[in-house]
Design a protein around this nucleic acid. Sequence first.
RNA 1: GUGGUUGUAGCUCAGUUGGAAGAGCGCCUGACUGUGGAUCAGGCGGUCGCGGGUUCGAACCCCGCCAGCCACCCCA
Length: 424
Amino acid sequence: MNKVMINRIKGTQDIAFEDIEYWHFAEEAIRNISHKYAFTEIRTPIFEATELFKRSVGESTDVVQKEMYTFEDKGGRSITLRPEGTAGVARAFIENSFVNLGSPVKLFYNGPMFRYEKPQAGRLRQFHQFGAEILGSESPLADFEIIEMAYSFLKELKINKAKLFINSIGCPVCREDYKTALKEYYSDKLPGMCPDCQRRYETNVLRLLDCKIDKELVHGAPGILEYLDSDCRSHFEELQWYLQRAGIEYEVDQFLVRGLDYYTRTAFEIRSSSLGSQDQLVGGGRYDGLVEYIGGNSCPAVGFAIGLERIVMLLKSENVKINGPETSEVAILAFGREESVRGFDYARRLRKMGVSTFVDVMERNMRNKMKHAARIGAKISLLIGKEEIERDIVTIKVMSDGSQFQVDSDYMADYVVDKLRDIS
RNA sequence: GUGGUUGUAGCUCAGUUGGAAGAGCGCCUGACUGUGGAUCAGGCGGUCGCGGGUUCGAACCCCGCCAGCCACCCCA
């Protein structure tokens, strides 16, 4: 290629043909599940004021500090491509006064998110998340429904090798006590720890818990569950009770902390062992402080986000059966100008009856037209040449057995529809 | 941002010690002025990722950059 080539932006992908079928499959499951759970869709802008993410996701988080696509628009405003979905939903909830709809409000979204990261297996710069949020309920029932919904989404997609981990990170009050205890535990060990951990000791102590380098130390660290106050504790216990009653298997992981600042109490992840290093399929939890944090009236909420690229990876590796590509049913092969006019006329009639119709727009010989019709999987080909025009007929060829019929052009559509029904 | 690894035709890849850029598949065309997954023939398609260096000579050796993949950090 001697032209100057412009390539995809790093960490993005083009999805077409066979690949797109996996996405259709997943997107259909999203609509199904959301409808069954009576969640309604919300579409928020792909970009928002930078401040929204700083305040919701958290100034000290990696996402905000080094992963945001931020730019200034021509009016001098700081704009950011959304790195996650919850902040926008919470903003929309406040801005449109969805509280007036009555609690709870159950919303879902599905769309692209952007993070400036180094791409690897299961991680892109533009990726897609399906998320659901329940706003207005403080009850562990809401936590339970969110987890159950994520769980049955995976079930609907026949993804079985997935494991649920839950934890409670308490409320801002009891979490402070825990942080103090953690700092105390780590204080004398700090000099021997990795540079990242030394940094995290100051910025975000909780993150010391999932350090992969100094993992030995974690075993002796105090667990957060012992520090929960009675409300947080009973919230967590109730959630587990509901999970058990529903027969949903889970594991309590005391060292599960989420990277985003807005989480309170319940935190959960669903991971898959057959995914590679980025094994987290679903992440979610409760964020009781967020709505107030970004300027609304206090409103408890809980939600999840599911990474669709990772879902698609699993569908592929687990050989989940998806629908085949939609092929056209009829191919119209016409020679010459008058014949082509007739061909387009037939196509209009067939499409009106709901038949997927391919019109060949290459001026080539019959052999090559036929070859292409076969290639795209047409079930029936319509041949229109000089003879057909003169006698006002059409030649209909059934591709599967090669049989051919000549039909008056007036009966073409009915005949084709009948034939399609016969051979399907 | 750090580390490992890989970049040759649209795809999969060969290319000897540094000595004329290739194959298969695909695409387009023709044999067959009107019949498909077959056959045969022809054609399109390459700044060998980009830039520099070494050399009489570089796809091959050296350096830098870019991109893909994998891992770390972190996350979905």
